[in-house]
Design a binder for these strands. Structure first.
Lengths: 334, 334
DNA sequence: GTGAAAGCGCTAACAC
DNA sequence: GTGTTAGCGCTTTCAC
C-alpha cells in the first residue's frame, strides 16, 4: 500500500545530488563520491573542495540510491516482545538501541509483525522459541543479535546475555543471610531464556542448601489482580513463608499490597525481592531489593555487536556478557 | 559510517526481481509491475498469472529501487521525548504506532537525534517547543503529525489531541463532589501542551469555584525522592490539604508512601488522583483514580492521520481529538 | 492490453 | 589521482 505519489520538488530547490556537487566542484561523480566517503584515492585539495561544496549545497546522499547500488541499507530492525503491561525494561532497552544506533549512523526500524523490511541486521530482545514471529525473523537470512540467549533451534549470529544465574544466586544468598529459610519463587511462565535460567538457578540453589523448592507460576504481564491472587493463595497455604522472589518486571511491587493486607510486614517478617529492577521497585514502600539488568546498556551493546558483525570486525557466533548487579533496599534490610 | 560491503547473494538463490517474474510469466517488466500493483491496464488472466509466478518465486519488491524511482519510502519516523523514567504512556504509544503502521504497510523508524532519515512523514509525540531536536524535525519539510498540540511557532501538518481540559475539570469536580475543598496541583514543569493545558485548567477551575490555587512544580521524570520531597513540604506547609492532583505519569504512585508516612490516609482524609493512568495507578495501594489517556489508541490514530495526509485523502492542517476518560478508583472513593 | 526504453542517484570496475 | 561507463530494480512515459 504505497503512500501516494508525491514527488520531490524539481527545479532549483530540489535536493542536491552527487552530480550537482561534482559539477559545482569541477570533478567527476566518482571523485566526488570518493571524496565524500573518505576513500583514499583523492588528493587532499580536491577532497576539501568537494566536501566544501557539498556542505554549501546542503548535499545529503540519497539512501535509496546508495542502497540500491550497494545493497546496504544502514538500517537495522528491532523486535521486542509485547505484553499487556508496559514493562519498563523494554522501554529503556529501546532507548539504548536508538541512541547507540544514532551514534553509529544506523537507522532503527521497529518490527511488530513477522514482515521484515529490508534491513542489514536484526536485534531480537528476549526472544521466545514458541513465538512464530521470532521464528520467522530468525530465519530471515540476515545477521541477528539477541538480547539474552535463544532457547530455540536456530542460533543467532550474536548474543549479549546477562549472568542471571550468578545474580540470582547472590540474591538468594542475601536472603539466606538475612534469615530467610523458605524463599518462594514466583516465576513468569515465559520461555524466554532468562526466565528459564532463573527457575533452574532457584531449583539448584534449593537443592544445594537443602531447602524446599516452592515455585509458583504467573503469566508474564499478568494483571496485578492475578499476581495478588497467587500471593494470597501462597500465604494461606504456606503461612511460614519468609521470603518471596518475583521474577517478572514489576510483579514485586504489584504484590506488595497483598502481602500487607495479609498482615505481613515486608522487610521485617517477610523479605521481598525482584529479579528485575525498575522505577516501581525504587518507589515501592518499602523500596524493593532487585537486580539491575541495565536495559539501556543492553540495548546499546546489542547495536554495537551487530554493527561489528556487519562490518566484519567481529566474527559471527560471538557471545558477550553484560554485567548486572543486585541492589539492596529496605525490603530485605529493615 | 556504512556497514561494510556485503553483497546480496548472486546466482540462483538471489532474491527474485521483477525481471525474473516478468520473464517467468512471459510478459514485460511493465506488465508485471502493473499487475503486481493492481493497475487497471492488464487483463485479469495476465494479472493472475503474474501474481502467481510472483508468489511462486517469493518475489518481494526491492524498496530501495522503488523508492529511488518514486521518491516514496513507505517509511515514517517516530520521535518520542526521553526522560529518566520509563513512562508507560510512551511505551504504549510506541506499540500503537508500530502496530497500526504494520497494518498500513508502513515502516517505522525511531529518531532520537535531530538527524532525520529519508522518510515520508513524521510523528512527534508530546512535542516541546524548547526542544531543539523537535524544532529541527518540524522544519524538515515533510508532513508532521503530532500527538498533542505543539506550542511553538511552526504548525504541524496534522494533530491528534486529547481534551485534557474537559477531563481534568471532570476530575476536579469529582474531587469537589467527594468533599475536597483545597485540591493541590503538582505540575510537571514541561512545556508540552498537555502539561500547560492542565495547569491552565486547574487555575481556571480554582477561580471559578473561588478556591485557592495551590500549585507545586516538579520536573517531569523527577526521581521519586524529589517528588516525595515536594509532597512532604506541601503537607507541612499546608496541613489542611485534602486532595492532591499529580500531573506526571507515575508521580501519584511515587508520592503515596510519603503521604502515608505523614499520617494521612489516602481515600479517607486525603484524596489522590493522577492525570495519567498507568499500571502503577492500578496496582497502588489504594488504587488511584486517574485519567486514561489511551496512549495505544493515540499512537494508532497518529499513524492513521499521517497516512491519510500522505495519500491526500485528508487535507493538511487537520486536527482530531482523541477521547479520554476518568477512571474512578479507591483513592477517591474510600 | 501490452512492450521498449529511459532514468531515478549512486558506486564499482576499469580505463588512463 | 581522476574520469568514463555501466548498472543496481524499479516505475513511467510513450509508442503500438
Amino acid at each position: 500500500m504505497p503512500t501516494g505519489s508525491r514527488r520531490l520538488p524539481t527545479g532549483p530547490d530540489a535536493p542536491a545530488t552527487i552530480a550537482d556537487v561534482a559539477r559545482e566542484a569541477g570533478v567527476s561523480k566518482t571523485t566526488a563520491s570518493d571524496a565524500l566517503r573518505g576513500h583514499g584515492r583523492v588528493s587532499d585539495a580536491t577532497r576539501r573542495s568537494v566536501l566544501d561544496t557539498a556542505r554549501r549545497l546542503g548535499y545529503a546522499p540519497n539512501r535509496s540510491a546508495r542502497s540500491l547500488r550497494t545493497s546496504v541499507t544502514d538500517t537495522i530492525a528491532l523486535h521486542i516482545p509485547e505484553f499487556l503491561t508496559g514493562a519498563e525494561y523494554y522501554m529503556s532497552f529501546v532507548f539504548g538501541v536508538a541512541e547507540q544506533a544514532a551514534r553509529a549512523g544506523l537507522n532503527v526500524t521497529l518490527v511488530s509483525s513477522g514482515r521484515l523490511p529490508q534491513v542489514d541486521g536484526l536485534i531480537l530482545c528476549d526472544p521466545m522459541p514458541e513465538n512464530p514471529v521470532v521464528g520467522r525473523l530468525m530465519s530471515a537470512g540476515i545477521p541477528v543479535v539477541t538480547a539474552e540467549r535463544f532457547g530455540g533451534d536456530a542460533q543467532p549470529t550474536g548474543v549479549i546475555w546477562s549472568d542471571h544465574e550468578t545474580a540470582l544466586t547472590e540474591l538468594l544468598d542475601h536472603l539466606r543471610a538475612r534469615g530467610a529459610r523458605r524463599p518462594v519463587f514466583i516465576a513468569s511462565d515465559t520461555t524466554a531464556d532468562w526466565a528459564l535460567t532463573l527457575q533452574r538457578t532457584y531449583a539448584r540453589w534449593c537443592a544445594r542448601h537443602d531447602i524446599q523448592l516452592l515455585l509458583r507460576k504467573a503469566p508474564f504481564g499478568s494483571p496485578p489482580e492475578a499476581l495478588r491472587g497467587v500471593v494470597r493463595e501462597l500465604l494461606v497455604e504456606n503461612p511460614h513463608t519468609d521470603a518471596i522472589v518475583c521474577a517478572a518486571d514489576g510483579a514485586a511491587a504489584a504484590v506488595l499490597p497483598e502481602i500487607r493486607s495479609a498482615g505481613r510486614v515486608v522487610g521485617e517478617d517477610l523479605l521481598l525481592v525482584s529479579c528485575v529492577d525498575s522505577l516501581a521497585m525504587r518507589t515501592a514502600e518499602p523500596p524493593i531489593t532487585a537486580i539491575d539488568l541495565r536495559p539501556r546498556h543492553m540495548g546499546a551493546e546489542c547495536v554495537r555487536l551487530l554493527r561489528e558483525i556487519l562490518t566484519g570486525e567481529t566474527p559471527p557466533g560471538t557471545a558477550r556478557t553484560l554485567a548486572i548487579e543486585m541492589i539492596v533496599r529496605a525490603s530485605t534490610r529493615s
